[in-house]
Simulated scan of single mutants.
Amino acid sequence: MRSGAARVAVLGASGFTGGELVRLLAAHPAVELSYLGAKGSVGATLADVHPHLSTLSDLGGRILEPIEPDLVAERAGVALCALPHGASAELAPALLEAGLRVIDLGGDFRLAPGSYPEWYGFEHPAPAWLEKAVYGLPELFAEQVAGAELVANPGCYPTPVVLGLAPLLAAGLVEPGLVFVDGKSGVSGAGKGPSEATSHASTEGSVRPYAAPRHRHTPEMERGIELATGLKVQVAFVPHLVPAVRGVLTTAAARLAEGVTTDDLVDRLREAYAGQPFARVLPPGAHADTKRTRGANLVELEAFADRRSGTAVVVGALDNLVKGAAGQAVQNLNLVLGLDQATALPAVGVYP
Rank of each mutant, 00 (worst) to 15 (best):
Y351R: 07
Y273C: 09
Y120D: 00
P277R: 05
T203W: 08
L96R: 12
G183L: 03
V151K: 11
Q331H: 12
A171I: 13
A76M: 08
P51V: 02
G37P: 01
G193I: 13
L318A: 09
A279G: 09
P219Y: 10
T261L: 01
N297Y: 02
A98N: 00
V315S: 03
G114Q: 12
L269R: 04
Y273T: 07
R294I: 11
A254Y: 15
G172W: 08
E123I: 11
G114A: 10
W119P: 09
A197R: 14
S202R: 14
R280V: 09
L335Q: 05
K132G: 09
G259R: 12
G186Q: 10
E196N: 09
G155Y: 00
G15S: 08
A73N: 01
E123V: 10
M1L: 14
V161W: 03
G86S: 09
A344K: 05
C156F: 15
G224Q: 08
L265Y: 06
S185W: 07
T262D: 00
R308A: 15
K323V: 06
V181M: 05
A329T: 10
K291M: 14
A112N: 13
G136Q: 14
Y120P: 03
I67F: 07
V315D: 03
T262N: 00
P219Q: 06
L169A: 09
P219R: 01
G114H: 11
V179N: 04
V72S: 01
K39P: 03
E65W: 10
P243K: 04
R292K: 15
A44K: 11
Q276S: 15
E204L: 15
S3K: 10
S199N: 13
F16G: 06
R75G: 07
Y351T: 13
R23C: 13
Y135M: 12
R23S: 11
V238H: 05
V348H: 10
Y273G: 02
G224Y: 14
G316P: 15
L318F: 05
L105G: 05
L231C: 13
Q341E: 11
G99M: 07
P113E: 12
L337Q: 08
